[in-house]
Design a protein around this nucleic acid. Sequence first.
DNA 1: AATGAATGAGGATTCATTCAT
DNA 2: AATGAATGAATCCTCATTCAT
Lengths: 220, 220, 220, 220
Amino acid sequence: MPKNIIEELIDQNDHLTEKQRLILEAAVESFAEKGYAGTSTSEIAKKAGVAEGTIFRHYKTKKDLLLSIVAPVMTKLIAPFIIKDLNKVLNQDFERVEDFLRAMIINRAEFLNANIPLFKILIQELPFQPDLQKQLKEQIALKIYEKTKEITLHYQKNGQLLEMPPYRIVRMTATSIFGFLLGRYILFPEFDWNDEEEIEATIQFIMYGLARKGEAPEQA
Amino acid sequence: MPKNIIEELIDQNDHLTEKQRLILEAAVESFAEKGYAGTSTSEIAKKAGVAEGTIFRHYKTKKDLLLSIVAPVMTKLIAPFIIKDLNKVLNQDFERVEDFLRAMIINRAEFLNANIPLFKILIQELPFQPDLQKQLKEQIALKIYEKTKEITLHYQKNGQLLEMPPYRIVRMTATSIFGFLLGRYILFPEFDWNDEEEIEATIQFIMYGLARKGEAPEQA
Amino acid sequence: MPKNIIEELIDQNDHLTEKQRLILEAAVESFAEKGYAGTSTSEIAKKAGVAEGTIFRHYKTKKDLLLSIVAPVMTKLIAPFIIKDLNKVLNQDFERVEDFLRAMIINRAEFLNANIPLFKILIQELPFQPDLQKQLKEQIALKIYEKTKEITLHYQKNGQLLEMPPYRIVRMTATSIFGFLLGRYILFPEFDWNDEEEIEATIQFIMYGLARKGEAPEQA
Amino acid sequence: MPKNIIEELIDQNDHLTEKQRLILEAAVESFAEKGYAGTSTSEIAKKAGVAEGTIFRHYKTKKDLLLSIVAPVMTKLIAPFIIKDLNKVLNQDFERVEDFLRAMIINRAEFLNANIPLFKILIQELPFQPDLQKQLKEQIALKIYEKTKEITLHYQKNGQLLEMPPYRIVRMTATSIFGFLLGRYILFPEFDWNDEEEIEATIQFIMYGLARKGEAPEQA
DNA sequence: AATGAATGAGGATTCATTCAT
DNA sequence: AATGAATGAATCCTCATTCAT
């Protein structure tokens, strides 16, 4: 079960040659490091150990190469964030919101950690690729909204979550989780993180906020 | 009282020519739209209605032009943290954390709203500009952390905030605020936002989390 | 047996493309005519019948192109001093100084005549290319001086040359030979020269200024 | 009695402003150091401490500036080499060739020493300025030939010089003197020269190659 | 399929020159 | 006379892309 999307891409596409694999890997590394516009195809060719022409035999243009990398990320990285784990929740695997959140954070953290370069590329190029923006907004965001509404309603019905528009609950939860992951893996990866403690604190925060009150429920 | 940094730049630097203003404005627009590496100087010149050589009379290199735009954002970004807000907190101008947060969110929202293109540029170029990274990490982030630590300790002492490492409180608060601002101004600006309600909900979330409990305090 | 250095370059480097040959020839012609700084790469490309980019595929920079032309001149310039002529002198192939000088003049005249454009380039660019200056002074000049010192000492020992610091004998001989070659091939090539007579006169001039003869007047 | 040609230029042209002087001096320095094509007008302006536009108020083009420097050198530096000192000789100030040569060498050495930058410029630019070449060949060279013929004939008549075409005697003499000056002031100025000894040796070299003596071996 | 030499449009930057002040 | 901001052509060089091998 490969977590790395590039490996998945290669595994799933049997027709991919060795050279194509090398090109893809080199491109991911370079794009993540210097950005799409800041990376030259000759650089990629050199890093991949192939001739310049070989790249264009497999990818019609440089942008084609980028899209062949980024597009799968969109569907593989973001969609599952919501969809795959959602089923477990709906199947009652997690009675409490806390448990759902914990599973989600750990799962996504592993996933992000295995795909950091891809993530960087996605974030960097989104603003300049209207195609991707559209795809992200219309397909992914829509799915998220529909599915999370179900989750939210589920936990709201059994009294675990406040009555609040689902989009807002999703935003706040996602924001808090992503804020943690961003600091953990992108901004300060060199910091000495105590992952378990930090994850529990994040869950606590999402659930019970920051206020200290005498009558507050059990806090960590 | 202009909130827009480019306007401030022009107002404060009397020696800035009309041409320089045009160049700066064109550069901001282009960089925000297509990224630094994706924008050519000839493009900027054309958009500014200026000869290409004129750009290089005022900014030695293209990167110089970028830095003259981005650097001020970094310092202006943290100005209120350092100068105004800490004193207000210590002077009891904000007795309750909620009030402090509300002021902060509104203040930063205004700032962000007035400088969206600059922000996009800053975020896009940070990964590729080690200069900026260093400046941000060593100077800006450190100052923010020191000041927010003081604020946090202040509210922890008078019992309004949980006992928790300040960096974590700062992260969670910042994450939640930035998550709101991101959705509001960058990702879905066209959505019909009820700003006041959303801000109050964000404050509530930071303070009291998402859990519904019988003994929970008054919720919005 | 090509005397022309460019031809040698091409003959010796089998990997040199047709295009590279054209570029080299065009560059030599242009540099000799208008100087290095006065020649544009687009000009060279046009004259060579090649795309401008092709130049930079073979020579990383314009200066690289210059050096690839000039550097060989420096080494070929001294080849006969080092390799052939010294041995001939020591082996008594040239019993008399006159014979050695005659051989040297003819040899260098042929060489110069076959490489006039290269020579012009070398002389023109020396003052502005510290690399070349250093190379010339430290490597070439030193080797020439060492070898010529040996030759001088040889002829001084057998009584054919005056007792005088070798550097001075070298200077005066070189000066006289180079003075002839300069007039003959660079300054007044269109003049109707009687080569044999001029060479003999030059030898005579050198000799009967340097020759030690009993009847000579007071010498310094 | 200024020996420096630039000073002379300024002294003789009363209409030259302070700024023009500064420009001329800066241009001479820069051209000598980096060549005409390698020097930018803005560089000259900065070194002269004037505005860029000021240069073009006084010299219509960059080449105009060069010619205003180089042209006088041609007439002042080379013509006097022959003409001025010639009169002394013809006036019998120097009975012996040796004395004439000594006076000539010393005079020209001083002159060259005072005008090294100008000299470098002249030599560097001659190959690329057909105007100057023509001027040099037709005017200067012609005068040289006429005048030196007189000198040569004079000393040939009174038996001090060999019977030989005057151009050849001039070439060999000039070559030897210039060879010394070149080494002394241009190539190896940092070397510890014993000027007097070197000059005498040069004279001896010239003389006892050219002198007609009963005991001399067969001459051409 | 793979190569890599060749291309030429386009990139950032420089520069001689102009002109309004 | 002097300035220096402005110009835009030209410079060196890079790069995505093509194509003969």
